[in-house]
Design a protein around this nucleic acid. Structure first.
Lengths: 140, 140
DNA sequence: CTCTCTGCAAAATTTTTGCACTGCT
DNA sequence: AGCAGTGCAAAAATTTTGCAGAGAG
């Protein structure tokens, strides 16, 4: 999680310009826990930047992902979601309301076993859980 | 993994017709370990059924998935892949050659912990590993 | 002042849908 | 024979790309 200024410096160091749009996209991502899709980002950022385009959202996400500043979340929905928390963590999605929440589990043991069994050199992993969130349980 | 006849009976029991296309799609899936996409399925099945269409592949996968006869694999590529092995297992993808292989790990402990921490009623999980397969390691 | 970036519109991809004809039961 | 299913083409939906003008360094 970088501050606006830290992000600007980092972009410059990597040869990218620190445009207001890029800073706004990243800042919004650091502020929300909603794990938004490109569409949600676009809808929100339009308020501050009425001229904001999908193009810019997607291109910005491409750069942020390349620089390892965002995680791409792929729960199997139509669209990708994004998360500014790049620490090793997992996600759980409610099958009723669709919300996505963070989860912090230690998968070191599982990853080692996966490497041993598969003989792959394991470099990354993604773990998604699906179920019913406490609020949707109440309603049922 | 059902035989052709078992699948035909199962489809009938569920009110679906056992068309040659459906049987061929499922049979091909049970024979391969390549975890094919709809496009790969279409390309292969065309040989036996020159008139086979994408429409039929997708509609068939929809039914097979609904009947829990196939797993949908979502490694974050452009397309979904499919697996006729519906037992609880995981997948690992080579980041060099793209192949997807099966992996059988016990995630009961992790799933329980996820339920405890999130307070969700956890119903399912998907775990993907990414790394370099033994063959691609040799080449490097 | 230069060169990257934005924003628009068009393109590319994957998946879904409508509909007339086919063929399973 | 009746009705679900196939296959074609068109539609939907998400993401990518080309390009002219805007703006960051």
């Amino acid at each position: 999680m970088l501050t606006k200024r830290q992000l600007a410096d980092f972009l410059h160091k990597k040869g990218y310009k620190a445009t207001p749009q890029r800073l706004a996209v990243y800042e919004y991502l650091t502020r929300t826990h909603a794990h938004p899709t490109a569409e949600m980002l676009y809808a929100q950022l339009r308020h501050e930047y009425p001229s904001m385009s999908f193009s810019t959202v997607y291109k910005t996400m491409g750069i942020l992902h390349e620089l390892n500043l965002v995680k791409v979340i792929n729960t199997g929905e139509e669209s990708f979601r994004y998360d500014a928390d790049t620490s090793r963590h997992q996600h759980i999605q409610c099958t009723e309301c669709g919300r996505v929440e963070d989860l912090y589990l230690d998968l070191d043991g599982i990853r080692l076993e996966a490497g041993r069994k598969s003989r792959y050199e394991v470099r990354a992993q993604e773990l998604y859980f699906y179920g019913v969130c406490p609020e949707c349980k109440k309603e049922a």
